[in-house]
Design a protein around this nucleic acid. Structure first.
Lengths: 209, 209, 209, 209
DNA sequence: GATGAATGAGGATTCATTCAT
DNA sequence: CATGAATGAATCCTCATTCAT
């Protein structure tokens, strides 16, 4: 079940902060394009154009277009899993833990919207690419963390006992992460406020008391 | 706001029911492939292979690959909008109307999963294709129907007054339609039961009473 | 030691003499270019230009440039091995059998110079391509046939007893097949006459009696 | 007919023996790669990798990849021609002279196998590169030397009178130089012994007395 | 002398689409 | 209706080469 296997960083140069900055910048550009236009639809030329270099020059930094996607997703899922694991490891009571997971999800949506959207939109593609099995694996690890909290909450009596944790997890997950498709952090609705509204709906339901 | 403008159905022969059946069959195959592998990733040859004909022969039935996507989405969104409009037009009280909208959504997911998944996955692409502006338009029409019900429910005192209808709508929509990504109707969990569970969570929330 | 394993003829249509003719013609053109300019140096566009079609259209007939090389070599080596095997199977005395092998070699050089040259020139490349292991295999089979004749000739007393068959085989092979680099069948020196001269030198040596 | 025209050695610094040693080492590496993988297939990056530097750094030593090939071949063919000319200039009787030419050929194969293989394998390419006309020229000079010996030997009665010198030359050349493709000097078969075996076959023929 | 980022030309391949048969 | 050969544009990628540091 281990998720953090080591990356075959064939091209990654050891140090040079400048070079690392360039790589990061290129990945940022690629992630934005992948998220908005779709991975397949985005051409390496699009990425090169957006970065101000020729498409062929991208291959000085990355082995392939797919390698860029790999690195983006691996980084994103890795840090997401890590953060969730820390929240769960804190050992807070279930409801507080779920609070933390959800609030962190909204913070992630606000801070890394492109990676989130990319991860959501390209699931069909990712299933077909054998090199991306780590995505399904880390997703499974994350699911396990959430399920643990939900199950504990049902057992502790915090959450309704008629709740099927698997269905509840998907219910929460889809509603929360789905907001990446429409939530724009620039408005007066901050991600903290949005998290608050969602928690209210999730915990209390839609009906008037 | 009208959505049902007429399609330039250059190729659609009014005649021969057999031909119509062939078209429908081809669209069914295409929709499945589009939904499973993604529209861009699916080649016209994939469709031909799955249908047992050569890719070029598809052009006897459709003008282009895009025309197939157009027809699939137009048909799907059209009937979805129509069904929602009928439910709302019945004039039931807000909660009962919302019940109907949600139950019909789950029924649609069960009956036409490929079209639903296609519609959800290709939103990034659809935004970039000018010929698919009808998608955004019909989506808007549907949103308006749901918002009407939600607003009426808040005003009638059925739904919590601290609910921002726009946020609530997206919350419901994303959680409900997101289930297309994991719900498999063949199991013992029927779509009616699933709808029941979701309605319970949506209305009553996750917390124990 | 079997050499005639079946080809994965994924693209090869069953029949249609016309289509087969087109394929053969394209392979003939490709073989000539590969032999004269080298496989790597020859571009698929060169082949397309020589055939009067666009380079992309070649992929209607063949999976890849490499698949063309594969088919050319497989066909060439297959029929060469077959012919050699028949000659040996006739059961003639060693010297007569060697005569037959050498004469057939010169006939092959005259009739299929491009395939012969290709086979000789691209040995370095072929060693590095794992898909072309059949080349080494069939070459080994052919070597075994020749060695059998040479060994039998030494044992029968026809050939010099101080002959190391392995060295003698390579001596004959390199001298005979090397002629593909300079022999032009159009002159008055026919391949039959050339074979005669080579047999005289091989059997009798260069020195005056 | 002169072959030893001076090279435009734009980059060759007269100075520093160390630098010369580095150049020689790089050319040795390049020759090995060119011979093993083929000139076109070998990338400038391959050479850099094998030398432990970046590909771009090679351009401090050589003007281009082609310049490396040029220098390797020019050096090889120049010294080969020179050695052959000395042997012929000694004025020994024809058979002794031919002995010397052949023995020196095997010594060259043993000592500089990569240059020999390179020269043999890339003949197709070399014909197409105008900058490499010196190769054909020096080859012609060498051919002339050998033909002189063979003709003299026929006239002196040492060699068979029914021998066509042009055909005999190619026969000897192809058999002798062809051995570079399989002869490995590390075994117990030294190049001197191999030369002995070949001379026996060439002079006496394959048949038992 | 070497690095590393970039160029620019070209190469194999894919794929939606057309059309004569 | 379907075939199969072909188009033409676009795509990912490679590689010799340059140059500022």
């Amino acid at each position: 079940m281990a998720t953090t296997e080591s990356v075959p960083r064939s091209k990654r140069r050891a140090s040079s902060t400048k070079a690392q900055g360039r790589r990061t910048e290129l990945l940022r550009i690629a992630a934005e394009l992948f998220a908005t236009r779709g991975y397949t639809t985005t051409t390496v030329r699009d990425i090169g154009d957006a970065a101000g270099i020729l498409s062929g020059s991208l291959y000085h930094h990355f082995d392939s277009k797919e390698a860029m996607l790999d690195e983006i997703l691996r980084d994103f899922l890795g840090s997401l899993h890590e953060a969730f694991a820390e929240i769960v490891a804190a050992g807070d009571p279930p409801r507080q833990a779920l609070d933390g997971l959800i609030r962190h999800s909204f913070a992630t949506i606000a801070q890394r919207p492109h990676a989130v959207a990319l991860y959501q939109n390209e699931s069909a593609l990712l299933t077909y690419l054998p090199d991306f099995s780590f995505v399904a694996r880390t997703s499974g690890d994350i699911t396990a963390l959430w399920l643990g909290v939900l199950t504990a909450g049902v057992e502790s009596g915090d959450f309704r006992s008629d709740l099927e944790p698997g269905v509840a997890y998907r219910f929460i997950r889809d509603s929360v992460w789905g907001s990446v498709g429409w939530f724009k952090p620039q408005g007066k609705l901050t991600h903290e406020k949005l998290a608050g509204q969602y928690l209210a709906m999730l915990y209390g339901g839609l009906l008037a008391a």
